[in-house]
Structure formats: C-alpha cells, structure tokens
Simulated scan of single mutants.
Amino acid sequence: MPRALVLYVRWVDALNYRIGRAAMYLLFVLAGVLLWSIIAKAFFRPPLWTQEMAQFTMVGYFVLGGAYALQLGANVRMDLVYSRWSLRRQAMVDAVTVLTMIFFLGVVLFGGIESTLYALEVGERSRTVWRPYMAPIKIVICTGVFLMILQSVAFLIRDIAHLRGKDI
C-alpha cells in the first residue's frame, strides 16, 4: 500500500482515538448538569437551561464518540453468516458496505452543513424558553459526522489492503 494511505489510516485512527477518549468525559458534564437540575429543583428555582443542555451534551457525546466506537468495533453488526466467512470474503463484503455507509454519512453531512449555514446566517435559536443558539450544536454534529466519514474511508483502505494481501 502507498505510504500516504498508511499514514492516513494511522492519522485518522489517532485523531478519532483522542477525540473519542475526550468525548467520554462529556458523561461527567452530563451528570453535573443533571445533578444541578435536581439540586436546583429541590432547593431553588428550577433552571430553564438544564434539560436542553443535557440534550446537547448527550448529542456531543454520541456524535463525537461515533468514530471512536466505529474504530473499536462497538457498532452493532448482524452476524448471522459473517463470522463463518473467510477473512478475505469479510473484507470484500466490508468494502462494499462501507461504501454505503460513506454515501449515507455524506448525505447526512451535506444536509448538516446546509442546516448549520442557515443557523449561522439567521441566528437560529431553539424554540424553548431558554432559546440557545443552534449553530454550535449543529457544528458539533457536522464535525462528528465528518470524523465518521474519515474513519469509514480508513476502513475502506484497510479492506482494500487486506484484499491485496497486505494488512495495515
């Protein structure tokens, strides 16, 4: 395999590993927001922002950790016959299915970018009482989808390398 492709796979793996490990800590942020919500409702005036902030934090956790989950193989795979196939056949099927995933993620990213640009242009805000700006969470979503596309391309390169008899 060309050195540039090997470097790409290693770079994407390292990037998604670091971002995924950092995204794991968003669960602590989520717990803090929910804890504050509980305390504030019990002793003070209920805050308007905690429910939506918890939702935004959870979206960030899932989307930024998505590429890391793909990297670790933590995604759900229906394994009725897959495990019985040879590694070469698995790589062939994976190469085809990853193309489908890249197409799907590309469509999601395209729509996400359009929605983000709209949110930035008009200053879109949530329709809740708190009314936070929507652009930051949309940027996070687009970033996470882009990272999943990068990881999917790395999978495709790995599958092609395996089909050629070389592992990365």
Rank of each mutant, 00 (worst) to 15 (best):
V96F: 13
D167L: 08
V145I: 11
L87C: 09
I39H: 09
P136D: 01
L27A: 10
L48A: 13
V108A: 14
A54V: 00
A119G: 05
Y8S: 03
G20Q: 00
V63L: 10
G106F: 04
L27H: 06
L5Y: 08
A54Q: 04
L117K: 09
G111M: 07
Q51R: 14
G66W: 00
L156R: 03
R131H: 08
L117V: 14
A154F: 01
G111R: 07
D167I: 09
L26S: 01
I102N: 00
P136Y: 02
E114L: 11
L147T: 07
F146M: 15
E52I: 06
A22I: 15
V122S: 02
R158E: 11
Y25C: 05
L26W: 07
R164Y: 08
P2H: 10
R45D: 09
L150C: 13
V122R: 04
V76A: 05
F28K: 03
V145N: 03
F110D: 10
V29D: 01
I113E: 00
W85I: 07
A74N: 12
L109G: 05
F28I: 14
F43R: 06
D159W: 03
F104L: 10
S37D: 12
I160Q: 03
L163E: 06
S37F: 11
L30M: 12
F103P: 04
L35H: 05
I160N: 00
E121K: 14
V12R: 02
L35D: 08
I160L: 11
F62R: 00
L99T: 15
R45G: 09
T116L: 15
M53W: 07
R10S: 14
V59K: 03
Q90Y: 02
Q55T: 13
K138T: 09
T97F: 08
V63E: 05
V81T: 13
A135P: 05
R88Y: 09
K138H: 11
G165T: 00
E52K: 05
R77M: 07
F155H: 11
A95F: 06
Y8F: 13
L147Q: 02
Y17G: 14
L80S: 12
D79E: 11
L147E: 06
D159E: 08
L35E: 09
R18D: 15
L105H: 05
I157A: 14
L70T: 13
V59S: 06
E114F: 08
R77I: 13
M24A: 09
A4N: 10
W130D: 08
W36E: 12
L117N: 07
I102A: 11
T57E: 01
L80R: 08
T57D: 00
V29L: 15
K166P: 03
V9I: 01
A154S: 07
G106E: 05
L120Y: 07
M101A: 15
S86D: 01
L26K: 03
V107E: 04
Y68I: 03
W49P: 05
G123I: 01
G20I: 04
M92L: 14
P136T: 05
S152D: 00
C142V: 13
T50Q: 09
V59F: 08
S152A: 06
D79M: 08
W11N: 14
R10P: 06
F155I: 07
T57Q: 01
M92C: 12
Y25E: 03
W85K: 12
A74D: 12
L72K: 10
F44T: 12
G106C: 04
E114V: 11
D159H: 10
S126C: 02
M148E: 13
